[in-house]
């Protein structure tokens, strides 16, 4: 996998673009939800897709977790899939956050809604940084209340060569919940992404 390697400078560049996109997403969310979103430096890591399930299996060992996937496509062959990981104990908090307490909305719908809001706000900011724009596929729940989510994650990740793991902790003043976001990018799109980063770096 050496050809998909990122140099320190490229990594730093990507990290900064992610920071800026996160900032924009948080701002939009804060205004929309009427609550302050505490922003942490999102830790990004490039991991081999094959190792992903191991990594998350230990983190979500105790509770059952839900996986929601959302695909995105941009220009110049940039495409990928985001996976949001939630602990199901958070579902009530998410309902409150979205103002869903008033009517009957299924758990599945809440999870796809919050996932599409969190990922598309972030991704559209990232696309802007990359001077690209993304279109999105509808979110899908990969597994819910499922003990063997690691298998599902492994199966999904298998189709990708490299995963950009962005650990995002959405912490809000009035409500608190955590979720993890994983960006999965196929090999050839990683090369495109690296080229774009080099172009940005050449400007500065």
């Amino acid at each position: 996998m050496t050809e998909l390697h990122f140099t320190d400078v490229q990594r730093d560049c990507l990290q900064e673009l992610v920071n800026v996109a996160m900032g924009q997403a948080s701002d939009k969310l804060a205004r929309y939800l009427g609550t302050f979103v505490h922003l942490q430096v999102p830790a990004i890591a490039l991991v081999e897709a094959a190792l992903l399930s191991q990594h998350f299996a230990s983190r979500y060992q105790q509770q059952s977790a839900t996986l929601v996937s959302l695909g995105f496509f941009g220009d110049q062959g940039l495409r990928g899939e985001t996976i949001m990981l939630y602990q199901l104990t958070n579902v009530g908090v998410i309902a409150q956050l979205l103002g869903y307490s008033d009517d009957a909305v299924s758990e599945a719908e809440m999870l796809t809604d919050i996932s599409s809001v969190l990922t598309t706000t972030f991704l559209s900011g990232l696309a802007e940084q990359l001077e690209n724009s993304f279109s999105y596929a509808a979110p899908r729940i990969l597994s819910s209340r499922d003990r063997d989510f690691a298998d599902k994650l492994a199966y999904t990740a298998e189709q990708w060569q490299l995963a950009l793991q962005v650990d995002i902790r959405y912490q809000l003043t009035d409500y608190s919940f955590n979720c993890d976001m994983i960006l999965l990018i196929p090999g050839e799109a990683v090369l495109r992404l690296r080229q774009t980063l080099d172009n940005i770096l050449a400007d500065f």
């Binding site: 701002d27 804060a30 205004r31 302050f36 922003l39």
Partner: peptide
């Protein structure tokens, strides 16, 4: 100079 541009911040 920040990415965190929320009004509160």
């Amino acid at each position: 100079v920040s990415a965190d541009i929320q009004p509160e911040m």
